[in-house]
């Protein structure tokens, strides 16, 4: 048990950080589009959402890099849960990579031309030419994928909580022997 491979410190930190950033991106999306009526705050939340989303993209690229070379922990049991967890993780990586890209694409195609500055500083260039139909389609895709990510996250967290006793949860949550 003591020699069981663990997630590295960098992996644990980047995991927790990207979890927080993604939750904040989802919360800001709901707030900016559905909860806040004050026009100034709403506009600011859009800017915050874009920064959070780009940070999530950078974090997932870093994490994919770390994961590439990592020694993976032992499979969980039963086997069907292991298969489910592998599927969930792949879906999570895919969504966390694709969603920010659709977000970036939609603001690029938008006729609004609202400048995007990451953390209010770093300008984000447009990756697409202005196109209303493309913008509307990307907007729909971005929002749907965003909600899908929320659903997959519920599954992911449920699985982690269901595997507290076998040390799976601890393997990502804190340092130590499994």
């Amino acid at each position: 048990m003591s020699d069981r491979p663990r997630w590295s410190r960098a992996q644990r930190w980047s995991h927790q950080l990207s979890g927080a950033v993604i939750l904040a991106a989802l919360v800001s999306a709901i707030a900016m589009n559905r909860l806040v009526s004050d026009q100034g705050l709403r506009f600011t939340l859009y800017q915050v959402h874009k920064t959070l989303g780009i940070v999530a993209l950078v974090l997932v690229l870093w994490r994919i890099g770390l994961r590439w070379r990592a020694v993976l922990p032992e499979p969980i049991s039963p086997a069907w849960q292991n298969a489910l967890s592998i599927g969930t993780h792949r879906l999570l990586y895919g969504l966390i990579f694709v969603i920010p890209l659709t977000g970036w694409a939609l603001i690029s195609a938008s006729p609004l031309k609202i400048p995007t500055r990451i953390f209010g500083l770093l300008p984000l260039p447009d990756m697409l030419p202005t196109s209303l139909p493309l913008y509307l389609a990307l907007l729909k895709a971005h929002a749907w994928l965003g909600w899908a990510l929320g659903a997959v996250l519920v599954l992911h967290v449920s699985g982690a909580l269901a595997h507290i006793r076998d040390g799976t949860f601890a393997s990502i949550w804190r340092e130590g022997k499994g």
Binding site: D38, Q39, G40, L41, F43, T44, Q47, L112, K113, I114, P115
Partner: peptide
């Protein structure tokens, strides 16, 4: 003035 510094800056801008 549109009631917020970021939205107001956008409205003033060349965009």
């Amino acid at each position: 003035d549109a009631g917020g510094s970021s939205i107001t800056a956008y409205i003033r801008s060349s965009a």
